[in-house]
Amino acid sequence: MSRFDSLQCPIPIADYPIVLLAHGGGGRLMHELIERIFRAAFHNPLLDTQHDGALLPLDGERLAFTTDSFVVHPHRFPGGDIGTLAVYGTVNDLLMCGARPRYLSLGFILEEGLPMETLWQVVCSMRDAAERAQVQIVTGDTKVVDRGKGDGIFINSAAIGTVAPGLQIGPTSVRPGDVAILSGDVGRHGMAVMAVREGLEFESAIESDCAPLTAPVMALLEGGVEVHCLRDLTRGGLASALIEIAMARQLTVQIEERAIPVDGEVRAACEILGLDPLYVANEGRFVAFVAAQDAARALALLQRQPLAANAAIIGEVTAEPQGLVTMRSVIGVNRILSLLSGEQLPRIC
């Protein structure tokens, strides 16, 4: 290959000459962007593990390292704000590597004109969130952009944590026979934010599930459960997380629709708007793939945790057919779950 080949943009210009919102929606277009632009340019063995964070060998120890950016609008929503989201989201990515979160960095991009009071509230909730998640905020950066060139406040964060010896938690450790356990009901965060953003009124406000997953994850790890993979169910929801794992391992995840808990208000809102709660974002839920012999104990350990009291076994891993998530519907018929292009759009009628 000549050196000029790599200068050609790997996403055909004819397809997408410009970035669309859907390229950040957690669906197929985002996967294409990551595969064809970012992995094509940066690929290396650590990046290629396709995990929520990287596991770095360092002087006999293993560090986990992750980064995340937060652009949520509105900045406040029932159950949290952009600050709590930044702390918990980043901490949770580390926990999904089986790491104990230690240190956090924060980068603020502020728009000229942002009320100082708003910034102070966000910073206070980050302070409280860091305390709850047991991480220290140890470095940061601030930039201010012209009015109209930001959305009030954007936050980037990075975090490092430590991984206990012997743990191999990630998509590559999933194997046939593993049991999939969901830590609680799905769809709260996405619907809470959508309700505020779009001015939708429901009988009672839906609260985001935004929370640090330290306690339930540590309960599994310290309880000696053979955990093979953990994945938090953020953008793209439960369905996208399962599909990514099935595709990464070329295995099949078979789940039971009836076993997946969804709160009544969230279901009602999704029904009205024509959205599937399995694809709606969460900020305090994860799925754990554990060895079959440990499944019952893992479930019991999780259900003792306030953040995972509604944990449920939702399915298992099989070898065939490959790279798919199949779901037995509520009326008992199997179908596949597939990645959406981008975010779900409400239907007409």
Binding site: T326, N334, R347, I348
Partner: peptide, 22 residues
């Protein structure tokens, strides 16, 4: 979201289409 092709693509797969099974 009401299109027949979208329904088949999303719920039945593509390429080697998966037939629904009981």
């Amino acid at each position: 979201s009401e299109g027949a092709c979208a329904a088949y693509y999303r719920y039945r797969g593509h390429g080697a289409a998966l037939e629904p099974s009981r």
